[in-house]
Amino acid sequence: MKKSNVTLGLIVISLGICSCTTPTHQQPVQKKPQPPRFNVLHPIKIKKITPVSYYVWLEKQNNHQRVKAYKDFLSSQGVTMVAPDFELFRSARGWEECHYDQYDIPDQSVWVNAVPTLKLLQKLVNIGILTDFELTSAYRSPLLNACVGGAKESSHMQNAAVDFRIGPEFPTSFEETDIADTKIKLCKFWQTEGAKYNMGLGVYSTGQIHIDTKGFRTWGPDHTWHSSICGEKIP
Rank of each mutant, 00 (worst) to 15 (best):
K2W: 01
K3L: 04
N5F: 10
T7P: 02
G9I: 00
I11C: 08
V12T: 06
S14A: 11
L15W: 11
G16R: 07
S19Q: 04
H25V: 10
Q27H: 14
K32C: 13
P33N: 10
Q34E: 07
I44D: 10
Y54L: 13
E59I: 11
K60D: 15
K60N: 12
N63M: 14
K71P: 06
L74S: 03
V82N: 04
V82L: 04
D85I: 06
R93F: 01
W95H: 08
E96A: 05
H99M: 05
Q102D: 03
Y103R: 02
Q108K: 07
V110R: 01
W111H: 00
N113Q: 08
L118G: 11
L118P: 10
K119C: 11
L120V: 07
I129G: 14
L130N: 06
T131S: 15
F133Y: 15
L135F: 15
S137Y: 03
A138I: 00
Y139P: 05
S141E: 13
H156A: 07
M157I: 09
A160K: 00
A160R: 01
G167Q: 06
P168T: 08
E169F: 07
P171H: 07
E175I: 03
E176K: 02
E176C: 00
D178T: 06
L186C: 02
T192L: 07
E193V: 01
Y197E: 09
N198G: 11
N198F: 09
Q208Y: 12
Q208I: 12
T213M: 11
W219E: 09
